[in-house]
């Protein structure tokens, strides 16, 4: 049973209390963007074997969205944070790097496009 702590209400919620919302931090596209970009946004997924950032809703609790960082191989949970966060918090990334030195977190290296803007 997966157990995640809701960062909004603080409840330690079991998987039966939560609803999955898929890969987090997707880059959204809109009118005027290409078919390739829409395909990437809507369908192409990392689906990583290892560290994964994903959206969850505390459906049978406070109802709010949050993001969980966890390992899809060991089911270890690294942490959760509110969905209104543009990129994983730096302290969480540091903690994950310490535990999983070989994890590919290159999307979150200093100069991501979002930071560069």
């Amino acid at each position: 049973m997966l157990i995640l702590t809701c960062p909004h209400c603080g409840v330690t919620a079991e998987e039966t209390e939560l609803a999955l919302g898929g890969e987090a931090h997707l880059k959204r596209y809109g009118p005027g963007d290409s078919d390739e970009q829409f395909e990437a946004y809507m369908f192409a997924r990392k689906n990583p074997k290892g560290v994964h950032f994903e959206r969850w809703r505390h459906a049978y609790g406070c109802g709010k969205w949050f993001i969980a960082a966890r390992c899809t191989v060991t089911l270890e949970v690294f942490g959760t944070y509110p969905a209104q966060t543009a990129r994983p918090p730096a302290d969480l990334l540091a903690a994950i790097r310490a535990k999983r030195p070989s994890a590919d977190l290159s999307d979150w290296d200093a100069a991501t496009p979002e930071d560069a803007q």
Partner: peptide, 18 residues
């Protein structure tokens, strides 16, 4: 179930969740 992992080795992504 490992399709995304192998696709990653070849440098592309798939519309798959494992």
């Amino acid at each position: 179930g490992h399709s995304s992992v192998l696709a990653g080795m070849a440098g592309f992504r798939l519309p798959i969740e494992s």
